[in-house]
């Protein structure tokens, strides 16, 4: 075998490996049964799992309660409540959180669930956008997400999403920041190992928005992504940057089929 051929084989192998990493989840699912993916929930101790499981002890549920009130409250120049158009959330919002980010009708770029809610604010309620990470937006998002609890993550089959998702995958694998680390280095290669006492999770977006004990508040997946960017000492993207939605698309695809458990608790 010539050196060149060996080199070419290696390259094919590498590309194959990279693909297997990105689509590994889908493959595993297709094989049925032995899905080895772990939600961050499984990496928590029993005390925190119990905190998430009990709806009267899970602090995120305080915000769901606020969201439920927000759902019923007329707002904006249209003086309409979410409920006026969407009715009972348990019916109309079931499964919705499991398929975002998605491209809204008439648009050409994806929005995440928070972005979709804000579209309804501006277009349907004729109200101001709710600021990112504001209590009101998080509460509505948590209330909507709760309606998909237990549903499998099911990103839409919209071919237009592909290029955004690939950009998300590229960011995930890019070595960046002062520490020159990639997300994949921890969340694929070292998941399950300890980083000074903390178990490195596989980083599945199963529980968002989450009540993170570190924040002592509810926060979005964006905020969580931002924390890891700061962690590797990379410059975090601006709050409304498209890069976050790209990463979210990538993560949702990677977690395809896993059950939503929002709103979750994380350390």
């Amino acid at each position: 075998m010539t050196a060149r051929l060996v080199y070419r084989r290696m390259r094919v192998l590498r590309v194959g490996l990279a693909l297997a990493l990105v689509f590994g989840s889908t493959l595993v699912l297709a094989q049925g049964g032995g899905d080895k993916r772990r939600s961050g929930y499984q990496d928590m101790g029993p005390a925190l799992q119990k905190m998430q499981d009990d709806d009267t002890a899970n602090p995120a549920m305080l915000f769901v309660q606020l969201g439920q009130q927000g759902w019923a409250r007329p707002s904006g120049a249209a003086n309409k409540a979410c409920a006026d158009c969407h009715g009972v959330a348990a019916a109309s919002m079931k499964g919705v959180a499991a398929r975002y980010p998605a491209i809204p009708k008439g648009a050409d770029a994806p929005v995440d669930l928070e972005g979709r809610i804000n579209l309804c604010r501006t277009e349907n309620q004729q109200a101001a956008k709710l600021p990112p990470e504001s209590r009101e937006l998080l509460a509505l998002t948590a209330f909507v997400a709760l309606q998909s609890r237990g549903q499998p993550i099911a990103p839409p089959d919209d071919p237009r999403l592909g290029v955004f998702r690939e950009q998300g995958a590229a960011i995930y694998r890019l070595r960046q920041g002062q520490l020159n680390l990639s997300c994949a280095l921890c969340h694929d290669d070292n998941a399950g190992k300890k980083l000074a006492g903390v178990t490195i999770p596989e980083a599945h977006p199963t529980a968002y928005p989450i009540y993170r004990l570190e924040w002592q508040a509810l926060g979005s997946l964006k905020r969580r992504l931002r924390n890891c960017l700061v962690g590797i000492r990379a410059e975090p993207y601006a709050a409304d940057a498209p890069e976050y939605v790209m990463l979210e698309l990538f993560f949702m695809d990677r977690a395809r089929g896993m059950a939503l458990e929002a709103p979750g608790v994380r350390p």
């Binding site: 980083l195 000074a196 903390v198 490195i200 570190e214 924040w215 700061v230 000492r233």
Partner: peptide, 9 residues
């Protein structure tokens, strides 16, 4: 234990 990936460095 101290959490990893905090808000601000």
């Amino acid at each position: 234990t101290l959490a990893a990936c905090l808000e601000e460095s």
